[in-house]
Structures are given as structure tokens and as C-alpha cells.
Design a protein around this nucleic acid. Sequence first.
DNA 1: TGAAGCTTTGTTGTACACAACATGGCAAAA
DNA 2: TTTTGCCATGTTGTGTACAACAAAGCTTCA
Lengths: 242, 242
Amino acid sequence: MALCKKGNNSRRQTAKTMARQKKTKSQQRADRIYGEIRDRICLLDYVPGDRLSEEELAEEFGISRTPLRSVLARLESEGLVKSRHGVGTFVTKTNFEELEEVYKLRIELAEIAGRLDPITKSEAGLNRIRAMIVRAGDLVEQPDQKAFARLSLDHFFEMAGIIGNAHLRDITIRMQLLTTRNWLTILPERHLQAEIRRFRSEIRELLQAMEVGDYQSVGHIWRSHISMSYHRLKAYAGETGT
Amino acid sequence: MALCKKGNNSRRQTAKTMARQKKTKSQQRADRIYGEIRDRICLLDYVPGDRLSEEELAEEFGISRTPLRSVLARLESEGLVKSRHGVGTFVTKTNFEELEEVYKLRIELAEIAGRLDPITKSEAGLNRIRAMIVRAGDLVEQPDQKAFARLSLDHFFEMAGIIGNAHLRDITIRMQLLTTRNWLTILPERHLQAEIRRFRSEIRELLQAMEVGDYQSVGHIWRSHISMSYHRLKAYAGETGT
DNA sequence: TGAAGCTTTGTTGTACACAACATGGCAAAA
DNA sequence: TTTTGCCATGTTGTGTACAACAAAGCTTCA
């Protein structure tokens, strides 16, 4: 289950720890566990409706229920799980209305992100994105839903790194994490390859804007991608009948 | 210390509980305590730098440290307090850079709020705002910083109620709460009356736009008020030398 | 006198036992 | 057979003792 997500997590951590350097060991451990469970939810290792056992998770991570519960509380505040007294803690199912709200908001936030003090990507950052294009190319040859999901998330965090406004970045991340799993759930298998191809062309387009340092355009392009992906999502939802 | 804030709290609760009806008694209690402490921080009953004793607060609210700690964790996630192991939990001091970031974001959010599915105020809602204009009028005659702060917060929550997009509303509230106490701290006493007067004219302006149902204009007006208040804040900060 | 190390004190973080709660199953009565 | 009430079981929420930790004061030695 856990597999090789360590690399991904640590990479994402760096983007987060930039803001606040002072992290005690307890907080680092909590952050690690939080990221792990969050990824499991977003990458559909835990499906909406699944119950997360506090006791089992506490045992798995070698801690007691108390600190684990604070991790779950954080996930609950972000809307990824919902605890019910005497029943259990469950991965949330987002209804269509909320999904639409989140998408509408994400569309607006993307445009703002390009305007509000964007952080210019270093050459190393650009290279990381170029490497993702290669990864996407491999996935076009050999489509795999989970690998695509992980690549997509990695690229998103790379994008979030350009947002200089700390709060806007946090909000953008939270909204993204709320929609990821829904996108994966609804995306039909037979459209997977086409989606990966489209994803590759999208991150190429974004890369080009970043290469010339035009971050306002990055914001607009990003916005258009989110908007179009939402329209496709609706179309897919109509296809499958949900 | 607690005084007559019950009315304010409950009124704010109604705006919150609209979204999710299912609230267990524990959650309601936690929400109440959270709101109480949050107000104390925002209205400067607790000044930045103050230590919040878990034990004392737990005793005051008649609960043990465990549920109180989850309330403090929530406040910490919103950036209002910061816990340090073995030292204490302290009300945060926002530096100028972060304050500027938050204001820039609030300016953008206000404009979006007017566009993204705003909720038309009922006649009762408009009447509540009209009552606030009266309260503001009284305060012009007899300026009082804390009363002004409370009125300002009440009006803000009334404004937040027009935001139909649930996540956007939450974010807007969080950003507002981060700036309130800074505004109060920096505002010089001798400009208080002028500020109250300006506040009254602002909420009148907003009311007019709401009365004709033009909520996009409400967003633009709100945006301009936030922007101008930020500029005055900077001017005041220059005056007092901070 | 000064400084380093130890001790004391008070605080937040953790572990664990128990309370509160919801749910499903079972039995008994209509 | 159906329904109603009760109980058993398992889960989240709470209280409490203790561990981890930091800071201030004290002591002791140079």
C-alpha cells in the first residue's frame, strides 16, 4: 500500500516548509503522517465512503490515538474525512453542487495566482517540469491511472510553488486536493490515454509561459485548463450516467 | 471579560450552521468556545504575545484539556495562536509582510464574492444592516474603540453571508479575522471618530447596492473599501512610527 | 566576579482508560 | 410475520496521569 511515495511526500514537504522553518519533531512526524493519509485519499487508495480506523492507523504509524486524532481532525477541517461519534471516520463523498463550487473557485484563484507576486521558477524548477513531460510521455505509451494521478499531483504542487502569496497558495492547494479524487473517479478508463496526452500538452503550454517569465499568462493558461477540465468532467459524468 | 457577547456569537453561528445542519452537542460546544476565544483575540481582549493557558481556559469553560486543545489547534491552523512545546500557547503577532499579503488577497476575494453566486439579502437581513447604521450613528456621537470593533465584526459577518460559495466564504472569513486585530492595534485614538464616520458611510454605500440587488457592484464597492482601509492602515502605521 | 552546569518549575504533547454514542442483532410480544 | 424494545459490540470523544521539553534560578567551581 505505502509503496514508493516517500519521494513524493518529501518533495511536497519542501514546498511547505519554506514558509515556516521552525518545526519540532512532533510536528514533522504529524506532517508526514498527514501527507501520507492525504495522498492515500487523493490517489484513491482510500475510496470515498471508506472507514479510517483510528486504532489501526495509530498502530501502523507507531503512535497512540491522541496525535493521530489531531491528524484526522486536520483532514476533517479540509473536508477530506468526516468523523461521526460512535460510528467512525469516513472518507467524504463530494456531491455535485460542492464540486461545482470548488471548481468555480479554483478557476478564479488560478488567475489571481498569476497576478499576486508569483515566484519565478528557477532553472532547476523548470527542469523538474521538463522531467514531468518525459514522465507524461512514458505514460502515453503505457497508460496507468494511478501513475497518472501521482504525476498530476506532483505537477500541481510544482505549480503551487509559483504562488508567492502564502495564504493563496494554501487555499489553492486545499481546493485542488478536494477535487483530485473526484476527477479520478469519474474519468472513464477508455479516455485515460487521451487525458494523459492532453495533460502533457497542457504542462508544455504552461512551461513555455514560465520559460519566458510571463506569469500572468501562466495564470490565465492554468485557469483555462481548470475550466476545460471541469467541462470535460461534466461530460464524462453525463456519459457514465452519474 | 465575557460580557454580552452571547448575542453576537449566536448570530454568527446562524450564518455558519446554515451549511451543515448535523451538529452534535460536542461540536456545538467546541464551536461556541472557539468563537468565544476567537472573538477575544480579534477584539484584543487577548493582545498579540499573550499566553493562553490551556489549564485555565479548560477550567473556565468547564471541560478538560483534551477538547480545549482541539479548539486551540483550530485557532493555530487559522494563524491566530501558536503553540510551543514546553513554553506555552501565544497569540500571534503578524508581521507587516504577511499583513500586506492578506490584504492583497482580501481585495481579490471581495470582487470574486460579488460574482460567484451571491445570496440575495432578505428584507430581514437588510433591516439588520440598517440597524447597524444606527449603531454606527450612536458611536459617532460617543466613540468607543471596542464597541466599534464589535460592530465592524458584526457587519463583516453580515457581508460574508451574501457569499454563496461556501469555501469562498470560509476563506474570506479567515482572512478577515487575520487582519481585524492589526487594524485595531494600529488605528490611532484621535482618528477613531473619523473612522467610525467613514465606516457608517461605507455600509450605507454597500446597503444601497444590496437594496437594488446589484451584487456585482457590492463586490466592487467592498473591494474598494478593503483597498482604501489598507492604504489608511499603512498611513497610520507611518504616523505612529511602527 | 563570572560562567557553566544542575535543579526546579511550569508548560505543551502523549498514552491510556473510560464515557458517550450509534448500530445491528436478537428476542419477545402483538 | 412484523414490530418493538433491549442488549451486545465497536467506534469516536473525554478525562487524567505522565513524558518531553524549555526557561529561569541556583549552586559551584575556576
